[in-house]
């Protein structure tokens, strides 16, 4: 080995630039910003005040925990809904209907998230389609407001994340040999025990990678909680946004950003530990 050629470094350059300029550099800067506090205009001293404020102010910590818990809940609900869909696409549907069903999961993602979320507003608002339909049926005697609450927000989060769960699950389930499932039944297994002992263990890498992606998307979502959530459903990203843009308090905003990063890393790590999976296996689609 006599050193690598120019070509190697040219190929490596975009990756290094991307990592360095867009990920590492901003994070270093954010870390520095978060670790200082303003004592006078344009005058800063290093301190942990921002992190102290995060811990001591109930609004911040409550919003933070709520966001984390709601994201976990959204992930679990997405998994429960997506699993049967993926199983149907991967194992029961055949040929063209399989491709068509997969495409139907994909199509909504061709329009922007904003438009998709607005679609839910049209359905759920007081003068919306569902409210009108219920009144027409006589099941409701006045318009019903279904927007601006946690349920509507959860609906939006699950809907937004669905594809990112269905794709890895379908891929791993497709790689499960039908004969293995049949062998499970043949040797005396019931539907439930085959699911528990054969299908789920096989799909575990897909389940975990889907959950990680959905969880991170939910945790970092800004649009859905803002548009569908009510006054009580403040999302942590909204807090970060208001610190940066409204309050112009970059120091606190940066500290919040790091807390969110810490939380998501911790939760992803615990999911991996709990399920005995490694990041390499899950991101390699569980081969």
């Amino acid at each position: 080995m006599t050193g690598r050629g120019l070509g190697f470094y040219l190929l490596l350059a975009p990756l290094v630039l991307w990592l360095g300029l867009l990920i590492i550099l901003p994070h270093i800067d954010m870390a520095i910003v978060s670790l200082r506090t303003r004592v006078a205009p344009r005058e800063y001293v290093p301190s942990l005040d921002n992190y102290a404020a995060f811990i001591t102010e109930p609004l911040y910590i409550v919003t933070f925990l709520r966001t984390a818990i709601m994201s976990v809940l959204a992930t679990v609900i997405t998994l429960i809904i997506a699993f049967p869909i993926s199983y149907y696409i991967a194992k029961i549907a055949k040929g063209r209907s399989q491709a068509a069903l997969f495409l139907m999961c994909l199509i909504p993602f061709w329009v922007s998230e904003l438009v998709r979320t607005f679609g839910w507003i049209i359905l759920l608002r007081e003068t919306g389609v569902i409210s009108g339909f219920l009144q027409w049926l006589g099941l409701a005697d006045q318009p019903i407001e279904m927007l601006y609450n946690d349920a509507a927000m959860m609906l939006g989060l699950v809907y937004t994340s669905m594809l990112f769960m269905v794709v890895p699950l379908t891929t791993t389930l497709e790689s499960l040999d039908d004969a293995v499932i049949e062998a499970g039944y043949d040797l005396g297994g019931s539907g439930f025990s085959v699911l528990r002992e054969i299908v789920i263990p096989h799909a575990m890498p897909g389940i975990v990678s889907g959950c990680i992606v959905v969880f991170m998307l939910s945790l970092g979502n800004y649009l859905t909680p803002t548009m569908l959530g009510g006054k009580g459903s403040l999302w942590f990203t909204e807090l970060i946004y208001s610190q940066f843009i409204v309050r112009f308090n970059w120091e606190l905003g940066a500290a919040f950003g790091f807390c969110l990063l810490g939380a998501s890393s911790l939760i992803v790590w615990s999911i991996l530990r709990l399920t005995g999976q490694t990041l390499e296996r899950t991101m390699g689609e569980g081969k």
């Binding site: 004969a179 049949e182 062998a183 043949d186 263990p201 096989h202």
Partner: peptide
């Protein structure tokens, strides 16, 4: 009971 063509042992 059946021995399958590709055996179908449970890999997990």
């Amino acid at each position: 009971n059946m021995v399958f063509q590709h055996l179908a042992l449970f890999p997990m």
